[in-house]
Each structure stands twice: as C-alpha cells, then as structure tokens.
Amino acid sequence: MFPTRRMRRLRRRTIQPLLSETTLSKKDLIAPIFVDESIEEPQPIGSMPGQYRHPVDGVATYVRRLRDAGIRAVILFGIPGQKDCEASGAYAAGGVVQRAVRAIKTTVPDMVVCTDLCACEYTDHGHCGIVGETCDGPDLLNDPSLDLMAKIAVSQAESGADVVAPSCMLDGMVQAIREALDGAGYQDVLIMSYSTKFSSALYGPFRDAAGSGYSFGDRSTYQMNPGNAREAYLESALDADEGADILMVKPAGLYLDILSSLAELGLPIAAYQVSGEYAQIKAAAERGWIDERAVVMESLLCIKRAGADLILTYFAEDAARWLDEEQ
C-alpha cells in the first residue's frame, strides 16, 4: 500500500535496465528477402520504402552485409521469370530460390537460410497450389497440392536450405513435407510452419513486391478467419502434432493474443511482422507523425514479450543497427 509500496522506485533510469523483463537481440531477427531472377540490379519496392527486389547474382552480397550487421537468419521469397498453372518453377533445380540458396551458402555458409515454401509466386493464377473445381466453384485443391509442396520442399533442401517454411495453410502439409524430406535423406532440415496464418488485409505490399496477387476469388478458404482464436490455436496444435519444428503466427502485431497462447505447445514460436505493418510505420514516419525508430523497436519488443522466439521483420537490418547504438 502507498506510501510503502512505491512502484516508481523500480523505474529510476539507472535501475530500469537491470529489471527489464523482456529484451530484444539480433539473434531474434530473421530478414525477409525478395529474389527476382529477371533483374540484374536491386529494384526498389514502391509500396515498401527501403526494401528491394534483389537479383540472384547479387543476393549473396546483400546477405553478407546482413551477416556483418549481426543478422543470423534470412528467409527467401522467389520471383520467377515465368509462371504456369502447376508452379513448376518452384521445384526446378535451377529455380530462382534454389540458385539463391546455393549462392548464399557458398558465400555466407554460416547464415541460416529459410525458404518460403509455397506456390503463389509461381502459379499463373496466384493461388498457393493446384486449383480445380470444388462444390463452391474453382478453388485450391488440398490433397493434390500436398504433393506439390513435398516436391518443392525436397528441391529446396537439395539446394542447401536449413529451414523450409510452408505458408500455404493446407491440411496435412507438415506431415506431407516431413515424410518427403525424411524419405529423401533430409531429416535435419527444419520445418517452420506458417501454422496460424490469417486471411489478413495487411499483405498488400508483399503481393506487390512478390507479384503474387490472385486472378480470382481470395485465400479465405485456406487462410484463417481473423475472428477465430480457438481455430487458430488448433491449426498450430495440429502442425505441432504433424512434426513442425517451429510454429509461426502471421501477421504479428494484431494477433499477439494468439502468439501468447501457443507457448504451451512447447515449440519455438516465430512471428511475422508483415509488409502492411512495415508500410504503415514507414508511411506515418515519412509524414512526421511518429518516430520510426521508437515505434519499430517498441513493436518488436512487444512481439517478443508476447512469446515470439523469432521475429521475421523487414526492419531487421535497421533494428540490428539500432541495437548496436543502444549499447
């Protein structure tokens, strides 16, 4: 009771750093990278100021820069020169991501390389797998798409990926991928499942950057309803049972309650601060409405506080620099 219990004693400027319950470090950060096989120089992404599409031949140089800044992991998104209805470029030995992984592992061998495992960037219809007729009209077919995901996973593992990250939200995807990887001799490749990926309005800038917009319908039949917390938990629990090594919540900022609830599953948890979250902060900062650095660091700290062990963020390089400056 006041005046005996004075909480402000704990907030003296010299005392606060000693009692911080949550701290952010560089090892928490994963940097997303767009790799475009049709360009020769980095190309700025208009809807994501400060982010670029990188050419295959130059991506390793950029990754070395990230490693020198203290970033220990990246995740690659490929932009192929050609697309088709079966996403054949996603599992081609000479595909954009496969070439990028090999280049990075040759140049920066100690960088942890994660690969986004999906088909939306590679299909001419923009959906995340094989499309066909369903009772509700044309839509993503679940089981035929599992075979596709398995082929992509093995191809990415063969190229040297340390972690594959299936993002298509198919039923049974983790089991299918684990069986395929193990059968091909890649038992040590991790699966970081987008286990609770919401059908969010915050993905627009990413679709612009990756050229992954869809030609019909939407993705609400396979991504999560933003209003469903129990279903979101069950999605991640099922992926844990199927053999996922790391679970992921996407987007991060609006779904911290879901992120926090997954801790009891006992697996490492990743959170993706998505393109729309990035673009909002950038736009407000450019107008002078917020302090970009302060808001970014607060947002990342709160994602960590909610239970994330890993944070995928387009601010990774900036955050690493700011963490250095705080020391």
Rank of each mutant, 00 (worst) to 15 (best):
S220T: 12
G58Y: 03
E264N: 03
I33F: 14
P17V: 11
N225R: 14
Q280G: 09
L202H: 01
M169R: 04
T61P: 00
E235R: 13
K250M: 07
A90Q: 01
Q187L: 09
T14N: 09
G276Y: 00
I75R: 04
G172Q: 09
C114D: 00
Y194N: 01
E37H: 12
Y122W: 12
A210I: 01
V164W: 03
S88F: 00
A271D: 05
M173Q: 15
P251V: 04
P17C: 13
F206T: 01
L323P: 03
M248I: 07
L141Y: 07
M248C: 14
K83I: 06
A294I: 02
M224H: 05
I39T: 12
A176I: 12
A92I: 04
R6Y: 00
A240N: 02
F34N: 09
F206R: 00
W289Y: 08
I290L: 15
K197P: 06
I246M: 07
G227A: 15
S260N: 09
S236C: 10
A283P: 00
S195R: 00
A270M: 13
H127R: 11
Y222L: 13
S47Q: 12
I269K: 01
A161D: 13
G217P: 06
A244W: 03
G81H: 05
G94R: 00
V296G: 11
A294E: 14
I303G: 01
L310F: 13
L66Y: 06
R99Y: 02
G129I: 08
L312A: 11
V56P: 03
P251Q: 03
A244F: 09
I303M: 06
V112C: 09
G288H: 03
S236D: 06
L256A: 04
K83S: 05
N228W: 09
A283H: 01
Y186D: 04
T22Y: 15
A209C: 10
Q280V: 05
W289R: 03
P138L: 14
L310Y: 13
C118G: 08
Y233K: 08
L29K: 10
E242H: 08
I177P: 04
A92R: 02
L146K: 08
G213W: 06
G160C: 07
A210M: 08
L18Q: 13
Q175R: 15
V154M: 08
V249H: 05
P42F: 11
Q156R: 02
